[in-house]
Design a protein around this nucleic acid. Structure first.
Lengths: 160, 160
DNA sequence: TCTTGACTCTATAGCCGCTACAGGGTTTTA
DNA sequence: TAAAACCCTGTAGCGGCTATAGAGTCAAGA
């Protein structure tokens, strides 16, 4: 099948497939005389594997490692377990950080229940203080925003 | 004070300060004869404000808006409340998404309790199936990983 | 006076995981 | 035969920084 068909079968964007190939996650497929990529069932399986991992928020590096373990079936799968355990740890600690953030935001929000003029706004005043803790972002975590890059394309506008 | 002192006072990287200036969040400061930036207390206050907002995971666009509201004290602060409410909503929905992800990962992990060979690994087999749902990432949310860009510098290596 | 070293400057590239062009070629359909 | 629908490569952009190169400035010590 050609690239668009593979894309449809796996719910992936065409550009993303080419990107995975460039990144070495998908092997280079055969080509037609007209230089079109031709895929088979193995490609589709591998791509589905990748997309499943991505839907679990794994990085491409982690997926690369999983694919590598998968490709050497003689090895035991302790590495798979370890990777997954580590990833679960990341998710759990991100949840904890976001919960704390939520508490901070809510207590900030309570400082101004009704709209008065911004000069006396309790929220703005609080944000001037340096009492807030930086959220505990230790490597391997992302923020609250964006990244709806899975099946959406968020509007991305730049000011100035 | 010069840029490094401002950086120390506010717990910010020097490069980040210059970046905020380029982005229009910090006004261009006066310069010495030798073209060095010279900052005063107002700059420090504004920068602290920005860093506090960032520690609450607001985007630079959101902060730009807050600063704008702050700079027009005649206006009422309904806009501030709205922005904060919206942001709290983002955080809450990100937490929900991550909880679901955590459940998925844990049930996946249970498929392989002890290390056997990768060919029969239940986890790898499950990841081949297309039964997994894409995580519900709707605009304005990020993933689990990375972004430890706040007071850390995560190792960033690229394969190949 | 000279030199060293700590700081500063601008400009540019890189991080991640895509997404979106531009500018061309090929294949299928009407 | 022409138009539409697909495909190709290459490159730039997203956010929020971080890191480098290559140059300049400034204060202290020899």
């Amino acid at each position: 099948m050609k690239i668009e068909e593979l894309a449809r079968h796996t719910g992936t964007q065409v550009e993303t497939i080419r990107y995975y190939e460039r990144e070495g996650l998908l092997p280079e497929p055969a080509r037609t005389d007209g230089n079109y990529r031709i895929y088979g069932a193995t490609h589709a399986d591998r791509l589905r594997f990748i997309r499943n991992c991505r839907s679990l928020d794994m990085t491409l590096d982690e997926i690369r490692l999983l694919l590598c373990l998968k490709d050497s079936p003689a090895e035991n799968c302790g590495g798979v377990n370890d990777l997954l355990d580590e990833h679960i740890g990341h998710v759990a600690s991100r949840i904890r950080a976001l919960r704390q953030l939520e508490r901070q935001l809510k207590s900030l929000r309570e400082l101004c229940q009704d709209a008065s003029d911004a000069g006396r706004c309790g929220i703005l005043n609080e944000l001037k203080q340096s009492s807030l803790q930086p959220s505990d972002r230790n490597g391997h975590m992302e923020g609250t925003h964006k990244g709806g890059n899975f099946h959406s394309s968020a509007a991305k506008s730049r000011r100035r």
